[in-house]
């Protein structure tokens, strides 16, 4: 009985990140498509809203469109960053998020907090995704 419970728990942990993309795609590539979408690890297709892609294109200089890989991951890890803190990784990703949140962005990492996550998700509901990570023991 206990073993079955643990098998189920391990399965739940493994499936926490099954909504992430098999492969991220660049903004430039997605803007050219009529129905911009990516394939997820669970086999499903995730469509991006065109209006959102256009909003991102306006926020970023054109030469950086190829560097912005979508979806942008909002990395949550309470044992590494603390509760309610998330990390955004990547130069282009940080610039876009910082512009939306009216923050300063230095380097390739940006830490954002719960109220900011809420704003970010409201502004970019299809082009951002949550990612759950944990510290390696």
């Amino acid at each position: 009985m206990e073993d079955r419970t643990f098998r189920l728990l391990a399965k739940h942990i493994r499936s926490l990140n099954r909504h992430l993309a098999v492969e991220k795609r660049s903004l430039r590539e997605l803007l050219r498509e009529e129905k911009p979408a990516i394939r997820l690890r669970d086999g499903e297709l995730h469509r991006f809203k065109r209006a959102e892609l256009e909003k991102l294109a306006k926020l970023l200089p054109e030469h950086m469109h190829a560097a912005l890989r979508l979806p942008i991951y909002i990395e949550l890890s309470s044992d590494r960053f603390g509760k309610g803190t998330a990390r955004i990784s990547g130069r282009a990703e940080c610039i876009v998020v910082a512009r939306i949140l009216e923050k300063r962005c230095e380097g390739e990492e940006l830490f954002i907090y719960k109220p900011e996550i809420r704003i970010l998700r409201r502004e970019l509901p299809t082009t951002t995704q949550y990612m759950f990570t944990t510290a390696v023991e």
Binding site: L9, A10, H12, I13, S78, D79, Y130, F132, T134
Partner: peptide, 17 residues
Amino acid sequence: VKLAKKGHRLLKEKRDA
């Protein structure tokens, strides 16, 4: 216990999100 605590932490994060 370690696995259960890890699962609990992650699921709590998912619930909050």
